[in-house]
Design a protein around this nucleic acid. Structure first.
Lengths: 217, 217
DNA sequence: GCCACTACATACTCGGCCGTATGGTTGCCA
DNA sequence: TGGCAACCATACGGCCGAGTATGTAGTGGC
């Protein structure tokens, strides 16, 4: 989840036109790969949304022009598609794996909620994509990602002792709360919640959504 | 909440160019008011999002041309502004009032949840506006509306016996679940939930989010 | 040190949409 | 029934962003 950034420094090498002039800032030339464009696109999406993903804007951002872009990609759609697939690929696998490693099923929820709550950067892309569900290209991606996460949550609740149908509904509720929270606090800025308040809210979520031991059969 | 529709029939009167021809469908002439444009704008927003609110597209939809539009509004922004204010005006007041009329605080939540769940049309505009929070004009409107609803929920939870801080967090959780559900089921179409499943989910929400009587001091 | 290839610049076309200008049509009212 | 105001059509100018065409500068193989 580190693929959201500008051009890696290893690519920024100056070539000095004739080894003269004060080539301090402008003569740095970059040679980009398709992956660089995809990363740049994801960064732009995270900051300004899918609608702001314009070819010329991204080119300026990367220090080149459109001519470069159309060498790597056939169209703007192709870039968006590649960026989305890249984002889906390098997903949140490690987090889920670590949660499953916790033996006590009931102790998984506090850990999961606290972890998700305290690294907000990875969710920026997800929040941006949520606001772009009118775009045909993002729907299947978001559908797959959301479905996988909901399946994971459902399994967690089942292993915590809930009946299958109850576990599914609890997973729906939990994931809806997650998505809604992203909307209400990232994009909309409801009175700018403080750190202490935020922690208290997370603990309240844990207390409310973690199955009570008596729920287990 | 009936202001989202096409041109009201009372305005569709034919004027028959010379009382001849088969003027069955095309010679119906309409004279529109500013409110008609605002309603049309809201309908278009509900269906295709704020980004799809284009002047010429809306004009075609209403059976007229741009020339008409720019008589009523100075700019596209003005229309959006007026439509948003209109939407905020004719809000959900009556629902909230009816809920408060229920004497037993604990019986309010099932009623509220079931009501909100079973009239999904009014939420289409809200869901569309949620996806347009990057637009500067919608942010203040959504901020006000969401804040009012959250205040209402907080008060309900307090009157149900929760401590003020707990009530606030419970309200946040509830409203986040609402918003997230809109996203996941309207725009994204997670496996197209059935009616029975949906009702079961609502009941699960009620069971999970309604304060237990023992929570009351 | 030559050449093919990669990566990029520049300059253009084209379509969509906002906004303007202006003239035509309808309805109301004295 | 003339006239004014509300309402609408048509045509045009201009901006912005996608996509194309073509020239050009570095890069690697031999």
């Amino acid at each position: 989840m580190q693929h959201v950034g500008a051009v890696p420094d290893c690519k920024r090498r100056r070539l000095g036109y004739h080894a003269s002039m004060n080539d301090s800032s402008k003569t740095e030339r970059v040679r980009l790969s398709a992956e660089d464009w995809e990363d740049g696109a994801l960064a732009l999406i995270a900051e300004q949304g899918v609608g702001a993903l314009a070819v010329e804007a991204l080119a300026r951002r990367l220090g080149v022009t459109k001519g470069s872009f159309y060498w790597h990609f056939r169209t703007r759609e192709a870039l968006l598609q590649a960026a989305l697939e890249r984002w889906e690929e390098y997903g949140e696998r490690e987090v889920l794996a670590e949660i499953e490693r916790i033996p006590d099923p009931l102790k998984r929820f506090p850990e999961l909620f606290r972890r998700v709550a305290h690294e907000m950067q990875p969710h920026r892309v997800y929040a941006a994509l949520l606001k772009a569900l009118d775009h045909p290209q993002v729907v299947p991606v978001m559908s797959r990602v959301s479905q996988r996460r909901m399946d994971f949550l459902t399994r967690l609740y089942q292993e915590a002792g809930l009946a299958p149908d109850v576990a599914l509904n609890r997973a729906r509720l939990t994931y809806a709360a997650y998505v809604g929270f992203l909307q209400l606090n990232f994009t909309l800025g409801l009175p700018r919640i403080s750190h202490e308040e935020f922690d208290a809210y997370v603990e309240h979520m844990i207390a409310t959504l973690t199955p009570a031991p008596r729920d287990a059969s």
